Simulated scan of single mutants.
Amino acid sequence: MIRVLGFAGSLRRASFNRSLLRAAQELAPEGLEIAAFDLAVVPLYNGDVEAEGDPEGVAAFKQAIREADGVLMVTPEYNHGVPGVMKNAVDWASRPPQSAALAGKPVGLIGASPGMTGSARGQSQLRQAFEFTNSYCMPQPELLVFRAHEKFDADGRLIDEPTAGYLRRYLEAFLEWTRRFTA
């Protein structure tokens, strides 16, 4: 069993990206288990706070990453870029650099947006951060859910069957990608 930690870069309970993470959990292929972590407990990064010891939410987040075989980041795109919530999570998980929780982890990126680019710019910016964290971001396939307001119902359920099919194929590829690093 490959165990992956998933988290959404939006704190809003009814966000499309939280809904996409739930859909990923439901559609995960056999052999892949996705646990969700809520980033609401991770405060803004502050070196002074870090020097006193990781806050409880940060310590739990880092431990969850360390225990996982891989990480699935589900990111929205705000103002043509990665949202602060997601970048903050990466910043905490990259500290301290010599023993970062993200070091050596396979990473998957997916995202949803009401816009036509489906979080492409946000995902692209996140990929740059993985050079520093020495994480292995899966290059292909990509999953960019555009016009997300048409793909989920009012309860946050993925109702668009083509998108569900793309998500299944993405998760199958991510399972194989993660296995490369756990052998």
Rank of each mutant, 00 (worst) to 15 (best):
Y136H: 12
S119L: 09
P114Q: 08
A148F: 04
E67D: 15
Y170R: 13
L167R: 10
G118T: 08
F61H: 11
V71W: 13
W177T: 14
A103P: 04
E172A: 14
P139D: 07
D48K: 02
L11S: 01
G70C: 12
L32D: 08
Q140S: 09
V82Q: 02
L175P: 11
E142P: 00
P139I: 01
E176A: 15
F181I: 06
G118D: 02
G31S: 04
Q98P: 03
E50I: 07
V4I: 14
V145K: 04
C137M: 11
E77C: 05
L32P: 07
E172Q: 15
E150R: 13
G47T: 02
F146E: 10
L175H: 14
L126W: 09
F7C: 06
A183Q: 15
P29C: 12
L21N: 08
C137F: 04
D69A: 14
I2C: 11
M116H: 03
L72I: 13
L21H: 12
A14N: 05
R22K: 15
G57R: 10
E52D: 10
R168W: 03
P83A: 01
Y136R: 07
A36V: 05
A23Y: 13
R169S: 15
I159V: 15
D91V: 07
A112H: 01
E67K: 07
V58D: 07
L171D: 11
A14W: 00
V4N: 01
Q125D: 05
A40W: 05
